[in-house]
């Protein structure tokens, strides 16, 4: 496994990025460089947060423009980029793909060809670091919401990525677990890019981006950016209700 690169993290660049879906433009990013250690993303549902995140590990290809992670194209050089970028999905349950915790955390390692004894050691080590070593033999189904989040995170961290991308990491958690998770995240020595509604999570970040209607409307240190976001949200709350999701949109496509 490659060692952790220096703390600044890989250079993630977006240039002239446009994402269109079903004839609508859902995201426009003329220029964005992500180099800071803790970068947050806020915005209403449907503002393009998840779309932006999924450009970063090649799950989504831009309709136009370029995305580069350390100079690599996440679509063309998917393997190399996925080595650098780990992705934690909004619903951890859907990210845990194997029935037993230990084997699920080892899933990525197995895919990389790491032999079994080494895998076991790495899995136990990673779970222990998250305070979840006792979960190793549990069935995925039996886990609580907070435990699922930890296991999903373990499965990604055990791969030693340089950047961790998280989509609403505390979305399924109660307050206690959300606070625990925030502390956990703060202690990780890698670049973090997190989309979140959880304003507590983002207050200690280096930089927060605000998205609205697929466009970046603010890019600031947390306090300012969050104030902007609150202003936008207040105005939106006072206005008419948003349009209902289109028929035929699957969960992944529809606004959450």
């Amino acid at each position: 496994m490659t060692a952790n690169p220096p703390a600044a993290g890989p250079r993630i660049e977006l240039r002239d990025v446009v994402v269109r879906r079903d004839g609508r433009t859902v995201l426009t990013v003329p220029q964005l460089d992500l180099t800071q250690r803790r970068i947050g993303l806020v915005g209403a549902n449907g503002s393009g947060k998840t779309t932006l995140l999924r450009l970063l590990n090649g799950l989504l290809a831009p309709t136009g423009g370029t995305v580069r992670v350390d100079g690599l194209d996440p679509v063309r050089d998917g393997r190399a980029v996925r080595r650098r970028v780990g992705f934690v999905f909004a619903d951890p349950g859907e990210q845990i793909v194997l029935p037993v915790v230990g084997e699920d955390v080892a899933f990525g390692l197995k895919n990389r060809g790491i032999p079994a004894p080494e895998r076991t050691a790495m899995v136990l080590d990673q779970l222990a670091r998250l305070g979840a070593a006792h979960l190793v033999d549990r069935s995925a189904h039996s886990l609580s919401g907070g435990e699922r989040q930890l296991v999903a995170l373990a499965g990604v961290l055990v791969m030693n990525p340089a950047t961790l991308v998280l989509d609403e990491p505390t979305g399924t958690l109660d307050l206690v677990n959300a606070l625990r998770f925030t502390t956990l995240l703060a202690g990780l020595d890698l670049q973090v890019v997190a989309a979140s509604h959880d304003l507590d999570l983002l207050t200690d970040f280096d930089r927060v981006l605000v998205l609205a209607d697929g466009r970046l409307v603010a890019d600031d240190e947390p306090a300012t950016a969050l104030a902007t976001y609150r202003g936008l949200a207040a105005r939106a709350a006072a206005g008419p209700a948003p349009r209902p999701p289109q028929r035929g949109e699957r969960n992944g496509a529809a606004a959450r």
Binding site: V19, R20, R21, D22, G23, R247, G248, E249, R250
Partner: peptide, 22 residues
């Protein structure tokens, strides 16, 4: 089929309008 897009069965199921690809 009315609610979910299943690619391999998709032969103009929904509204019979051509849906542009992303």
């Amino acid at each position: 089929h009315r609610q979910v897009h299943v690619e391999q069965m998709r032969e103009l199921v929904l509204d019979d309008e051509a849906r542009p690809r992303a």
